[in-house]
Design a protein around this nucleic acid. Sequence first.
DNA 1: CCGTATCCAATAAGATACTG
DNA 2: CAGTATCTTATTGGATACGG
Lengths: 210, 210
Amino acid sequence: MQLENVTSIRRGEEKRRYEDACGLAHALDLIGERWAMLVLRELAYGPRRFSGLKRDLTGISANVLTQRLNELEARGLVRRSRLPPPASVQVYEATQWGLEAVPVIARLGRWAARSPLHDPTLPMSHVSIIMSLQTLISPERAAGVTVRVERNEPRDCAVTFTGSPTAVAGVIHGGAPFETIQVDGDLDLARRFIDLFVLPEKVEAAPALA
Amino acid sequence: MQLENVTSIRRGEEKRRYEDACGLAHALDLIGERWAMLVLRELAYGPRRFSGLKRDLTGISANVLTQRLNELEARGLVRRSRLPPPASVQVYEATQWGLEAVPVIARLGRWAARSPLHDPTLPMSHVSIIMSLQTLISPERAAGVTVRVERNEPRDCAVTFTGSPTAVAGVIHGGAPFETIQVDGDLDLARRFIDLFVLPEKVEAAPALA
DNA sequence: CCGTATCCAATAAGATACTG
DNA sequence: CAGTATCTTATTGGATACGG
């Protein structure tokens, strides 16, 4: 009985930490658990509801999502808040500091895109495709252009790309024809927009097994 | 029997992946397992032997280290090689692509150093303190200075800092007095060297529990 | 609909002993 | 030294049930 209590208390407090002063080890103590960085990714462009997170994080179970959100909140990366009436629903949003990790994990994604094992045909979340616009933009090609990325209702758009995230990614990053999704507005501008983004060069396949 | 075979085959092949085209998700498929990024960190400045890795990755067990190294090798991040005679020992070294992840995970470490939960008094590896010199250098204060970081025997050094990684970190990053370690050579240069490094500002403590 | 809690099965991690 | 083998424990995921 006593021992069981001790165990359960410890479980909540210390979990499985790296006992290491290295900043990276601490980063992994903070956001190294399974799904944690992906939860943060989903919060990159503003507050989200539980059900939306669950839907977009394909494969996560409700109890794990609850646990990750609680941990991130306790560690100061995520805050619960309530949308103003009439919505009045509870949402989760990243704190300022939590948002500062986003460009770093985005660069991690850019690094991984060079992997020969990367499969871009898998489903992806809405946030992922948006984030890819920030990480895959070519500084040279975008010289003189200011690209601002935000989540919003489309208003007065010169061009809109409409479709599933995977299909839109296929057009913007994979060179798929416009017909595979819905592209409205200035098609020439659309083509110039797409040209701003360049996939990083693939690494040669691993020598041994895949 | 048949089913067991299928299970064991699958275990080796697919493990527990995120089925997500997002680059970040793939990065976590590659180096998201426990210890993987820390193994990569240890390889950041050159090849290492198994026993050295095991010693510096405090708390890792031999079987997990073996598994991580095999996975990283299969994924093209790490290569086994053999030191030239007379050493002739087997070592692990990061591939070019693997090394490209290092600055990214280093930035993750810098981000985490802002955490109020970070405890710099914990033990740290030799690699960690070296890496901190790259991540915590202040561009302003180091303007005009070229800092090159490498692993090597000390040769013709104007200043040397000798001590445990934690103690050296205490002097360089924590403002501890020189007497806590061994500092040889030009003490004034040592002081100017230390001034190049600035810890990032702490975030205010998390509101709820720690 | 928005979560939270609980139970169960599958895996990953940790501890330890052991072998070439 | 460089790992394997084995056993135990912890975490994860899936299903489902439950309260607001």
